[in-house]
Write a protein that binds this DNA or RNA. Sequence first.
DNA 1: ACCTGAACACCGTTCAAGT
DNA 2: ACCTGAACACCGTTCAAGT
Lengths: 188, 188
Amino acid sequence: MALSTSDDAGRYHHGDLRRALLDAGARLLRAGGVDAVTLREAARAAGVSHNAPYRHFVSREALLAAVSAEGFRDLRRRLEAADGGPKANAIGLGHIYLRFAAEERPHFLLMFGGVIDKADFPDLAEAAAAALAVLDRAVSGGGAESAAAETLRAWALVHGLAHLVAERQITPETARAVLGEEPRPPFR
Amino acid sequence: MALSTSDDAGRYHHGDLRRALLDAGARLLRAGGVDAVTLREAARAAGVSHNAPYRHFVSREALLAAVSAEGFRDLRRRLEAADGGPKANAIGLGHIYLRFAAEERPHFLLMFGGVIDKADFPDLAEAAAAALAVLDRAVSGGGAESAAAETLRAWALVHGLAHLVAERQITPETARAVLGEEPRPPFR
DNA sequence: ACCTGAACACCGTTCAAGT
DNA sequence: ACCTGAACACCGTTCAAGT
């Protein structure tokens, strides 16, 4: 009550311009790919002047990095929801990964497009690492030899399949078939 | 003699503006990534007016598609040079693939970035298919069951590793270690 | 602190001409 | 056929103000 008064909500045009810009960015990304994500269009969607976004993002790249980070958090959530559930195994997580690439193709391409340098955006780097850590735990069992050859092999296979799907070089069905449906052993 | 007189060579400013634009595009790509490839800059590099390129490429995307197609032809050449030689096996080709991703990172990201729709550029689609056919032959042995599960699995693994290298998520050395050094059996 | 409006240097793309 | 120059509608980014 003390912190969320109607006064607070009215401090910005939208209560939270950053949130509005992020949502607009995700919408533009889904609608037209990375190139369609522009600061000016996001500002327009949020109903503010074309350079109000600079109060929240230092550059267009920073907005893209933030949208990408949200994608990694979404991926992580999906992986964690499956983990511990009926799909608590490496193959199951592989299928989640494939599904994410198919359902959120523009996000996937942004997240793994190699265009945004994670070194410049610590929040993005952290979100990416957190999502991939879920995969790592599932494959290596959380042992000391984390990120070992087995994990990398499994990750590379799934990632390669996901990317080939995103590029429309293979169909999602084909990818699923290659990955296999059996719950165990992991990935192969 | 009849066709390649000095008269012909002087028909364009560069003898071959298309070639000059393609070279400029590749140079810009290597120097600054996909975003740095612009029709106006390519025109500037070729010493022509900003809209002379439209005589050879219908759009910026068409230039990018052509540069991408050249990348696929380069990749194919590398794969074929290794094929039949001392590395005439699937693992060997996998290493060539990895090397291409590391050495020509910007090209690799453009070629497999999912931004250019191959359906719109038949020449690009053909160049890509030709390069991947070399891999397919090496893995499936050219049998009738081309592009079978084994080929896809091998391709996805190598492609995933290559892409993770391009994204700087893993080092080229790690990728090589995961792929393995032994000449046989293929990939695993 | 947060937002606006004008301005600058770029783009891709189109059009009317020039040779 | 091939190229030029002007023009239009976009960008990202910066700056000087306004509240």
